[in-house]
Design a protein around this nucleic acid. Structure first.
Lengths: 241, 241
DNA sequence: CGCAGGTTTGAGGTAGATCAATGTCAGTGG
DNA sequence: CCACTGACATTGATCTACCTCAAACCTGCG
């Protein structure tokens, strides 16, 4: 027997939004049906191939997005090409930096993904009139700030082994929006991306993977598929006591 | 001839607030005189010795603060004592993490400082009723997020030399709330703090200082007093082209 | 099959850590 | 006025974790 989800004025909600992930936990969740309709008029869904760029460092921001599916990496590059991933965003995160013209970072799909784009101006206008929306964005900004600071400790003070274990733990706790901690998953990032996230080289990342595998902290199949027999043990390897 | 500052209802504003730094650029600037009065009823100024702790990692947040004078460092420590500074806050920054019970970081005065404390509950209540206040806090959170991500690039990808130069440039552009870039200043942090900020040891920091001094990128007197003859050159050493 | 992109493994080099000694300077007290 | 102290900073010698360079190894896929 199927119970119908009880949404207020479900029929007033745009068709594409009705089953949308971003309405549960995402920014759209705080909007009224009318506001959702207005935003929806100007928004469009897009499929992104792995590696597709959403916005580039230094470009003018014309769109914000919601991540519907997939993982998006936020990177910074230096003039000589050295690169650092400064954040990973998972569905149903909001993607964008409000109140600024030019993007300080590059955002690109780490996996095959799906996003919902809407013009900066439309949302900016909506934010001004909707305290709940600003509150929601504020909370996400604070969450990202907490995560960034956690990662600063990892980058500045942890060993290569701890860094890789920390990364695995991060993925285990973020890939699935439903479950807060899963033990079998596919890595959304290549070794090169992982290296850029951890401030290491791909060779060092690879060696640490091998080491963790040999010590039975993780199992790996096909490079990307990972299982963690004992999450507590992984956490200890990550230096999170 | 002296021109009187034109504040609306200046006489309605609490005496201690009238000349306060935090009203110009700080969060109090967005409040009405009535709101300022209410907040002021519950707030108190405090002088902090260098090293004094404002709040500890894991403690329950009961107060927020505004920094009136001085520099406050935000740190994270690992179980074995390894430490990382994850942010520096300068007057007139707001100090606190809204919407959360327990502090994930330690905040302590890096220099002799002055703060204005007010109860978490009073401000939280005020935020709910005042969209402008939430907007202000949102903007500061985004600013801190930008800074955290800039620093992640520094921690993950820069050499010791670039890290130290980046730190000096950061200080040059932040110590004085009035001037965005000054060439002569006192370091608000000890070598140990600088090392914790840069993810290095004090010995490496010291060696890089010496190297920068010998290459005439900076001059140093009394360990703390620094002058920068050519800011562009310092920026190049920092890897910011 | 054979090639291409990603990954692992190996050998050797180096930036930064570690350990230990020395230097500087502001108090403090004789 | 000068010796003593303690906190902080510099310098030196050595070690090592991670990087660099190079080769080998998958694993799909035309």
């Amino acid at each position: 027997m199927e119970v119908r989800r009880q949404d207020i004025h479900n029929s007033d909600i745009p068709v594409v939004c009705r089953a949308c992930e971003a309405r549960h936990g995402g920014v759209c969740g705080v909007l009224t049906p009318e506001q959702l309709c207005e935003l929806n008029k100007h928004s469009s869904r897009h499929r992104l191939d792995s590696g597709a760029e959403v916005i580039g460092q230094g470009e003018t921001v014309v769109n914000y997005s919601n991540i519907i599916r997939g993982v998006v990496k936020l990177t910074k590059v230096m003039a000589d090409g050295r690169q650092q991933i400064v954040g990973l965003q998972f569905a149903p995160d909001f993607l964008g930096r409000p109140f600024i013209e030019e993007s300080a970072i590059t955002a690109e799909a780490a996996t095959e993904s799906e996003v919902c784009n809407f013009p900066r101006k439309v949302l900016d206008r909506l934010v001004k009139r909707t305290p709940e929306l600003e509150h929601k964005l504020h909370r996400q900004a604070l969450k990202e700030l907490d995560e960034a600071r956690d990662w600063m400790l990892t980058l500045g003070r942890k060993t290569a082994q701890e860094k890789v274990a920390s990364f695995l733990y991060l993925i285990a706790t973020h890939v699935d929006p439903e479950n807060i901690e899963i033990t079998v998953f596919d890595l959304p990032l290549s070794r090169a991306d992982i290296a850029d996230f951890l401030g290491l080289t791909i060779e060092t990342v690879s060696r640490q993977f091998t080491k963790l595998r040999k010590e039975n902290v993780i199992r790996i199949e096909n490079n990307r598929h990972v299982s963690v027999p004992d999450m507590e043990r992984l956490m200890r390897y990550a230096g999170n006591d």
